[in-house]
Computed example of a mutant assay.
Amino acid sequence: MSSTLTTNRYGSIAPEIYDIDKPDFALPDTAFHLERFRGFSAPILEPACGSGRTLIPFLQAGLDLTGFDPSPEMLDRCRARCSATGFAPDLAGWTFADFAYPGTFGAILVPAGSFTLIDDFAAAMAALRRFHDHLDPGGVLVLDIQGLASLPVRGEDRRRWTAPNGDLLTLEGVRSRTDWFRQRAEVTYRYERWRDHQLVETQIDIMAQRFWGLDEFRMTLEAAGFADISVVGDYDRSRGVRSSDRGWTFEARKP
């Protein structure tokens, strides 16, 4: 089953929660990727840049980033956050399936498993080929994915946050579908906004992900034209990858 307009949509409440729950450097990927790109002088593209959790620290480090995201709400927050920190990067409302730039980039960075939101193998393969086409010769793709160990996980997700204006924001996530054949899972999220003890807004988002095998993804990168492929588990370069890793970071080069 391929993604539709009803899946992987971030409405207005989800990006607000995202910024509260994941402030800059709250997750280990940002520091890891900043170290990788220290001193990098070529332009970098960040697909699915969201509200700027990675993009803004990279700009602050003097790196040249361009970003796109299909969520208008995420992009609005990203533009506002960039403006507040004195930056005005090139941001666009592309998707993985239709992004197109007139030039190429020295690197493409997809952190924190955003690539798994492409929940169909053929669409993921097309995106990787599009990445390849948008890289300079010798350019690098750095991409985080979640492995198949995440596919059986069925725990419910219930959390709450207080927004800066005092609203109570709540989330309830329930695994609603697991497709073992396509390595795909759906989680139905219910977002609520409470103000003065009254429910004032509710949104339902269905998030779909496709999880990957380690060798499967390596071979998929090779089929897309990439070479010199390496992988790191859980942002730890001091050891080899493990089946228990929550995520893998692949790096590959366009010959």
Rank of each mutant, 00 (worst) to 15 (best):
M74N: 11
M74K: 06
L75S: 13
D76P: 00
D76M: 04
R81W: 05
C82N: 07
C82G: 03
A84C: 05
T85P: 01
T85G: 00
G86R: 06
F87V: 02
F87H: 15
F87S: 03
P89T: 02
G93C: 09
G93Q: 07
W94L: 08
A97H: 10
D98W: 06
D98V: 10
F99A: 09
F99C: 09
F99W: 04
F99P: 07
A100G: 14
Y101T: 03
Y101W: 00
T104D: 06
T104H: 08
F105R: 05
G106C: 07
A107R: 04
A107C: 08
I108A: 03
V110Q: 01
P111A: 09
A112V: 09
G113E: 06
G113L: 05
G113S: 07
F115D: 00
L117T: 02
L117G: 04
I118M: 06
I118G: 11
D119G: 13
D120G: 05
F121W: 08
F121E: 07
F121Q: 10
A122P: 06
A124R: 06
A124F: 10
M125R: 15
R129H: 14
R130D: 00
F131C: 14
D133E: 14
D133Y: 06
H134R: 08
H134P: 04
L135V: 11
L135H: 08
G138T: 04
G138Y: 02
G139N: 06
G139F: 03
V140W: 13
L141G: 11
D144Q: 11
Q146P: 01
Q146E: 12
G147M: 09
L148R: 14
S150A: 10
S150P: 03
L151T: 02
P152N: 11
V153H: 14
V153M: 09
R154D: 15
E156W: 03
D157Q: 13
D157H: 14
R159P: 00
T162F: 00
T162S: 11
A163W: 02
N165K: 02
N165M: 05
G166S: 10
G166Y: 04
D167V: 10
D167Y: 08
L168A: 12
T170A: 08
L171N: 10
G173T: 01
S176I: 01
R177I: 03
R177G: 07
R177W: 00
T178C: 15
T178A: 15
W180M: 13
W180S: 07
F181P: 04
F181W: 08
Q183S: 15
A185G: 10
E186P: 07
V187A: 06
T188G: 09
Y189E: 04
Y189K: 10
R190D: 01
Y191V: 11
Y191K: 10
R193M: 06
W194I: 09
R195C: 11
D196R: 15
H197G: 12
L199D: 12
